[in-house]
């Protein structure tokens, strides 16, 4: 987890506006090392995505999307659990981090969850999470 944390800190540095693809790539490679990789990686990513610093959160969303495209089934099954989906939902909810997160971050989180409903139709929990957000009026069509 230490190495994952170091790559992620560098990849989400809020003082840098450009994407650091080298660090993002290293982080994704590190996710696949060891059985705990996906679990730790998602825990670290959730924390960064919840950051009140817009740039840090947006960088973290880019890292997340790169991982979804590059990491395997173990990462996908872990991100499709309520444990991680709840962390994303907290960014959208005014009862949680929604009061600090910017509209830009919130709309990207919504896009990410929506895109997963399309790419991973077999993941029932993703569909449930999205339906709940719609029912609560947090996601508008």
């Amino acid at each position: 987890p230490g190495q994952l944390q170091r790559w992620l800190n560098e990849a989400t540095d809020p003082s840098v506006s450009e994407e650091n693809w080298e660090c993002i790539q290293r982080f994704c490679e590190q996710v696949n090392v060891g059985t705990e990789g996906p679990l730790f990686a998602l825990r670290l990513l959730a924390h960064k995505i919840q950051s009140p610093q817009e740039r840090e959160a947006l960088h973290a969303l880019t890292v997340l999307e790169t991982c979804v495209n590059n990491c395997g089934d173990r990462f996908h099954s872990e991100m499709a659990k309520f444990r991680f989906l709840n962390e994303l939902i907290k960014v959208l909810s005014p009862k949680y981090y929604g009061i600090w997160s910017s509209e830009k971050v919130k709309s990207r989180v919504t896009e990410v969850i929506f895109s997963w409903t399309v790419w991973f139709p077999q993941e029932v929990k993703i569909q449930d999470a999205y339906q709940m957000l719609k029912k609560q009026g947090i996601v508008k069509e």
Binding site: L39, L85, Y96
Partner: peptide
């Protein structure tokens, strides 16, 4: 040998 991999999950957050 048993893995430490945690397969458990939470419930969907009620907001």
């Amino acid at each position: 040998t048993a893995s430490f991999h945690d397969d458990s999950d939470e419930d969907l957050l009620n907001i």
